[in-house]
Design a protein around this nucleic acid. Structure first.
Length: 120
DNA sequence: CATCGAACCAACC
DNA sequence: GGTTGGTTCGATG
């Protein structure tokens, strides 16, 4: 059963990409500076596939307001970035105090448990 | 460690 | 109907 949401008219409809974008924006805003989370974690919280989570993030090209750059792959790899690509993403992470070695973020900086995000 | 293939789900062709 | 993504996971070398 897919996720359902209410539209402006109060009618129940299937969630679309736009809805997931809203959801991921809210979630990445919870990630503290100096830490990152993963596509997998976000996907599990939303109950969608990791790919869909990535797609939702790529649809929101506002890196400053909503820090999509704090989302990396579950193996520590950077993953992609819609604006400026991975190099720009890497730069942003460094600025926030997250070291990137060999194209990877150390596991200690990664939040991969939902509770860690919800009850910091 | 590196690569491979299948599964993921909405959007787009 | 088939392809495509800011991916993942297990299996295999």
């Amino acid at each position: 059963m897919p996720l359902l949401v209410l539209d402006e008219g109060g009618a129940l409809r299937r969630a679309g990409l736009e809805d997931y974008v809203e959801a991921v924006k809210a979630l990445v805003s919870l990630v503290p500076v100096g830490r990152v989370t993963t596509y997998s974690t976000i996907a599990r919280l939303l109950g969608v596939s990791p790919r869909l989570a990535g797609r939702a993030l790529s649809l929101n090209p506002e890196p400053i307001v909503y820090p999509c750059h704090r989302v990396v792959r579950s193996d520590g790899g950077l993953g992609g970035y819609s604006v400026g690509g991975a190099p720009f993403k890497e730069g942003l992470l460094r600025l926030e105090g997250v070291p990137v070695e060999g194209g990877r973020v150390d596991r200690v900086y990664i939040i991969d448990e939902p509770e860690e995000l919800l009850d910091p």
